[in-house]
Design a protein around this nucleic acid. Structure first.
Lengths: 213, 213
DNA sequence: TAGATTGTTAATCGATTAACAATC
DNA sequence: TAGATTGTTAATCGATTAACAATC
C-alpha cells in the first residue's frame, strides 16, 4: 500500500510523543488524548495507524509501550543501517556528534573528508578517513546510507559515485534540491534555510493578523 | 487570506530555485519549465503565485529576477529581524556559523550561554553573552526572534520568559514539540531526528518495492 | 452489563489538476 | 496576426473528519 507523505511525516512524531509519555510513566492512551497532545484529531490518528495494522483495543485505547514498539518496527528503527558521513566541516562534525544514530535506525560507520590534515581525527568516536578511500571502503563495507555535508557543487558528482558503489539512501544537507536518477535511491533533503524563511513568512502573517485586530 | 502550509513550504523552494536560475543566467521561465525543474505541475505553480498577485505575463512567462524579488517580499526577507541564539553548544555554534541570516531575513544580534567560561568568545563574529543578561538585553534591544539550541528540559521555562520579554518568533532545535500558548507567537520546530526516521522508513519502503519486482 | 473506544465506512473538505478564456 | 502562456474557473483527487457498528 502507498503511504502518503503526510502520514510518513507524522510517524516520527508519534514515536517521539509516545517516548515522552513513557518518561512520564504513562502506559495507556486513547486516540482522543493523544490527539489533544499532538494537535491532531482522534480520527486522523486512528486512520494513520490503520494503514499498518490494529494496535489498539476497543474500549481501552492503546498500550503506549506496545504502540511505540510497533511504530519503531514500521519506521525500521531496529535495522541499524550502516552509514557514512561525507564532509567533516562545521556542519558535518556537529551532525556526527549531535544525532543519536543508534536510536534512529542507523550506525555511523565512517566519516570522510578531503582535507588530509583531518585524516585520523576522531569525531564522535569515529576516525576521519580521506575521501580517496571512499570507493574501497564502500566495496568492503557496503554502507547503505550517506550523509552529505559538503558544498552544493561537489554533491552531484559524489552522489553519482556513491550510487555506483551501492549507496542508495541520502540525507542531504548540501542546501540544494538533490535529485537522484537511480530509481532505487531515496533522498531526504534538509534545508535549514527553508525552515527559517518559513518562520519569516509565518511571523509576518502573525504580525499582520494582530495589527488588523 | 489564509495561506495553506503546503504553499508556505513551497515558497522557499521557489525562492531558491529562482536563485539557481539566475546563477545560470536564465532570466525568463514559464510555469511549465519551472514545474519540470521542481517536480511540480504548472497549474500548481500558477495557483501558488496567484495567492499573492499576478507576477507573470501572458504568452511570455515569468521574469526570473522580478519573480524572485516578489517572493522575497512575500517571505519578508528584506526586513532583517533581530535575532538571538540561545545555547552556544555544538549545535548552536554551528547554526550561528552556518546559516546566512542576512540573506534569509534575519540578523543575529546576540548569542547567549549559561557557561561563564564562554562569555565573550566570538562565534560567527558575535560575542557570547551570559544568560543572566538575557532580560536586560531584550529590554534594550527588543529582538524579535530566538533560536533555541538548548536541551529540551530548559526550553519550556526559557520560552515563557522570552515571550514575556516580547520575543515571539522561535526557531526551535530542542528536539521536542514546542507548543507556545501565547497567540502572537510563531514557532518553527526543526527535528533532525524526525527527518532521519523518515529516511529510514522511505528506504525500507523502497527496498521492499524493489524486492517485489 | 454499561461505558468506552477502537477499527472502518461514509461524508466533507481542501489541495491539486485540468481546462480555457484572456492577452501578451 | 498566430502562438504561447498566463490567470482563473471548474473538475478531480486525496486527505481529513464524522459517524457508527463492533467489541473490549
Amino acid at each position: 500500500m502507498k503511504i502518503s507523505d503526510s502520514v510518513i511525516r507524522r510517524l516520527p512524531r508519534y514515536y517521539r510523543q509516545l517516548g515522552e509519555l513513557l518518561l512520564e510513566d504513562i502506559h495507556k492512551i486513547s486516540s482522543k488524548e493523544l490527539a489533544k497532545k499532538m494537535s491532531l484529531t482522534a480520527s486522523q490518528i486512528r486512520q494513520d495507524f490503520n494503514n499498518f495494522g490494529e494496535f489498539g483495543q476497543q474500549g481501552y485505547g492503546y498500550n503506549v509501550d506496545l504502540l511505540r514498539q510497533e511504530i519503531a518496527k514500521i519506521l525500521n528503527l531496529h535495522e541499524k543501517k550502516s552509514t557514512i558521513l561525507i564532509g567533516a566541516g562545521n556542519l558535518g562534525t556537529t551532525i556526527a556528534a549531535h544525532i543519536d544514530f543508534e536510536s534512529l535506525g542507523f550506525h555511523l560507520s565512517a566519516i570522510f573528508d578531503k582535507n588530509e590534515k583531518l585524516t585520523g581525527t576522531l569525531v564522535a568516536g569515529v576516525p576521519i578517513t580521506h575521501t580517496d578511500q571512499l570507493k574501497e571502503f564502500c566495496e568492503n563495507n557496503a554502507p547503505e546510507a550517506a550523509i552529505l555535508c559538503i558544498p552544493k557543487d561537489a554533491s552531484t558528482e559524489l552522489v553519482k559515485n556513491l550510487t555506483s558503489y551501492g549507496v542508495n539512501s541520502f540525507w542531504n544537507f548540501s542546501a540544494y534540491d538533490l535529485h537522484v536518477d537511480y530509481p532505487q535511491a531515496t533522498v531526504e533533503n534538509v534545508y535549514l534555510g527553508d525552515s527559517l524563511m518559513a518562520l519569516s513568512f509565518k511571523t509576518q502573517q502573525q504580525d499582520s493578523k494582530i495589527n488588523h485586530n
